[in-house]
Design a protein around this nucleic acid. Structure first.
Lengths: 105, 105
DNA sequence: TTGACATGTCGTAATGTTCCGATATATTAA
DNA sequence: TTAATATATCGGAACATTACGACATGTCAA
């Protein structure tokens, strides 16, 4: 004891982490997660907030659902999505503290 | 007042954030940042810790330096890198709390 | 000067990602 | 049933990323 200790995450775990970050690393997916952390929304509502067509939002949502970030439930012909991975809250807070956040009208 | 308020980051800022996340989203770059948050290291030391050849580590370092994450200083024929962006600490903490961290020998 | 070492840079092939149009499915209303 | 709405999926073109070999530069020791 006495030298400088180095605390490392295994390369295997960092590969997992990198995969999660890559999935998150898209402006529309970040907005989707940011919204879903504050409530449940449909594909159409999320698409409108991202200013993209619904089919593209649907693809982003499918990607995030397959990796366990989100879950969904169908109500009539609408589908509501929710955040399933609690750690997303933490990362979004980091992003918001660095890049800002404003109350939407 | 009274409705459900939605706090959003602008799509422009989220694009910046996504760019940063994409740069971070690589296992070797994550390990490099994790090490540099705990001290200064040379290209060769970082390459060894990532189990990659030095030229590849050099490319990762150049990428992270160009986007402002890192700075470097030359000492003889070695180059030491440091973390320049303080928010990296926060994100790494998120990753470590989710994916674990162990004391290296 | 020569040789060894540490780092940096350049092409490029392989791979992955993003976006878009077209189409498919499912649900509700008329 | 038909039409309209909401969501999902598919194929492919355009673009970005990664890893690797080869080479270039700069520094030190002998």
């Amino acid at each position: 004891m006495g030298g400088t200790k180095l605390n490392l995450t295994t390369l295997e775990s960092l590969s997992e982490a990198a995969e999660c970050l890559r999935i998150l690393a898209h402006p529309h997916r970040l907005r989707i997660v940011q919204m879903l952390l504050q409530g449940d929304y449909t594909v159409g509502e999320l698409a409108a907030a991202c200013e993209i067509p619904s089919p593209m939002a649907s693809e982003h949502l499918r990607l995030m659902q397959r990796c366990g970030f989100l879950t969904s439930q169908k109500e009539g012909r609408k589908v509501y999505y929710q955040v399933a991975e609690p750690h997303l809250q933490d990362i979004l807070h980091c992003i918001e503290s660095r890049f800002g956040v404003e109350a939407a009208t």
